[in-house]
Design a protein around this nucleic acid. Structure first.
Lengths: 341, 341
DNA sequence: CGAACACTGGAAAGCGCTCTCCAAGCGTCC
DNA sequence: GGACGCTTGGAGAGCGCTTTCCAGTGTTCG
């Protein structure tokens, strides 16, 4: 019983006996329209089942009511297993959840864009064309040219995680150094003497900062040197790193994320070490894994949802006023003390 | 050094010295255009840095190159903690990853739409208006009217998870009953005598099927009655359910998802029960949690990424041919045997 | 050698909407 | 009573693109 053609403004106007312009004004709630006409138009809208065509509207207003979540992965091939890992990790979902908590009430849609270097030009073009009003960027590769391109094209954008090189784009980030220091303090305070670290990839800013922060704090406590192994944020890499660290006879270890810490816990257990009595472990992220681990993980809380929500707010502000100053928000981490340290 | 206005088809045409129509034809690769002109036009495109305006294109073609991922949550208020739980769960990310693996190579975008019952009308209208070419629907509420509305409006759609009531819409699903039967078989085969189950919410089809399948299989094995507790798929609810099941002196339990199984493991451990010696545990999903658990979880594998990818393929096929027959794909689960059973 | 025919490229009509004019109507003030 | 300002609604020009229709050109065949 549906007609094949959707009712347009024109149809509503005809039913209401007014002009297209008037219907448009009523629907968008602008200008003073005679209350009677107002009423009349709304009932015509109701009667025809009219729904504004966003596409047509976007074409003229150059506003799409959409924000892009750009996942920038520089070099990945299509079915790189890395991608599936990325999506399966709660990281992605938490970001989406945080963004939606702000975007949804604002009536703004989220469009997911995955793009590698070859797609940069196209992406920037599409965004300038009004495909989306702005972008939240999740930069995976260490030094990503995308933020710079976005800034140059004057596209409202906010990064999640600071860029490797300074770029005139707002971002939200965690005070990773401070978080790592929290872990160091905890380990030292417990009385650990031989403390090591398992880090993430060295070229990721967040990872670098955790290393720097940890080393600096340890130095402050008189530990000039810290045994370090590099992982890649997977549980597996955490296991490997811990195994290679076993010879160091550590009694404390800071692991740069919870997933790797899970692996560490397993290796320690297999090696017959009690946690925290023999070896204390501090993780990072306060993910659900931390709570599920046995012993429950003492970890540095990373308020990712809040950060993503803030990113959405910053972006909205920037869309509303493109000349607003670039501003960034750094979140302070806190230590969540559980059993492992 | 960027001009404020983006180059349009008109500009390219002027530079190339041809008409708009010709440029359009070249860019879209239709009709036989003189190879020389073809060349000429492309170099003009290059020179001007032209990027087609998708919005304008959509307006006339009524194709958007976008697919909506609709998360239908019927009754939720904006900052319901349920939503944040939903996004943090790997379920969401795995679906997105699976969809993207098909959509990205096809050059199609994914737009995230969260919508409750009040938004249904608007959503259907927007989709009919060509906002997106089709929808993948993730129905959270038990009996969701949305799939029916979509079918009625003849909007290409594919559901992930079977609808509670039959609806002429394609879907992909897991043979949940068969999966539950796999778990029952395993538990019985191990020699367990007193076997219980912890299920998900009773009004979710997937959850119902697991209960039915488990009961049926157990009956086949001569167990007429199965102690059952209901959880809500969270680790916490799993713990509670298990605690209340402790009095039953079970030696085997089937838990309807891995997250709850994690909770079960903890409770069992605290109660001094060894797994699997005293109590065998089988989970469901084969999530990363299953692997991380100690003992590692024996669980029913749920190939969610593959299912989501298939959903994307079905949707694309339906978009290409709206009159194609409604067809659904049911995936067969397999048992992943680890330590817990 | 002229007519029929493919083929190519241009002109122009929209897609559905917004928004800037502009005209009409009305009240107000000198 | 006339001029002015204010409110209100309509006409119409696009936004950038696709696509139909048609004219022009070169080709082939009777």
């Amino acid at each position: 019983m549906q007609s094949h053609r959707l009712p347009t403004l024109e149809d509503v106007a005809r039913v209401a006996g007014v002009s297209r312009a008037t219907v448009s004004r009523v629907v968008n709630g602008v200008r003073n329209v005679d209350p009677q006409l107002h009423e009349l138009v709304w009932s015509a809208v109701e009667q025809t089942g009219y729904v504004p065509n966003q596409v047509a509207r976007s074409l003229v207003t150059r506003r799409s009511g959409t924000v892009a979540l750009v996942v920038s992965d520089s070099e990945t091939h299509d079915d790189d297993p890395f991608m599936s890992r990325f999506f399966a990790d709660p990281y992605f979902g938490r970001v989406v959840g945080g963004l939606m908590s702000v975007l949804r009430p604002a009536g703004i849609q989220l469009a997911l864009q995955m793009v590698g270097a070859p797609g940069h030009k196209r992406l920037v073009g599409d965004l300038r064309n009004g495909q989306a009003d702005g972008a939240v960027v999740l930069s995976l590769p260490a030094r990503d040219p995308l933020p710079g391109l976005l800034a140059e094209a004057r596209i409202p954008a906010v990064l999640i995680g600071r860029p490797a090189e300074p770029v005139p784009v707002s971002y939200v980030d965690l005070a990773n150094e401070a978080g790592a220091a929290l872990a160091a303090d905890r380990l030292v305070e417990r009385g650990c003497q031989r403390i090591g670290m398992i880090s993430g990839p060295a070229d990721v800013p967040a990872s670098q900062d955790r290393i720097t922060g940890f080393r600096r704090a340890m130095a402050r406590h008189g530990h000039a040197w810290v045994p370090l192994r590099q992982g890649n944020f997977t549980q597996d890499s955490g296991e490997q790193a811990m195994r290679s660290l076993l010879g160091e006879r550590l009694d404390g270890v800071f692991v740069a994320n919870d997933l790797m810490a899970l692996g560490v816990l397993l290796v320690l257990r297999d090696a017959g070490k009690r946690v925290p009595e023999d070896v204390a472990v501090v993780g990072f992220d306060d993910s659900s894994a931390a709570l599920a681990a046995r012993p429950a993980l003492t970890t540095v809380r990373h308020p990712l949802e809040d950060m993503a929500a803030e990113a959405a707010k910053l972006l909205l502000a920037r869309i509303a006023d493109p000349d607003a100053r670039v501003s960034s928000v750094i979140y302070e981490p806190t230590l969540v003390t559980r059993q492992s340290a």
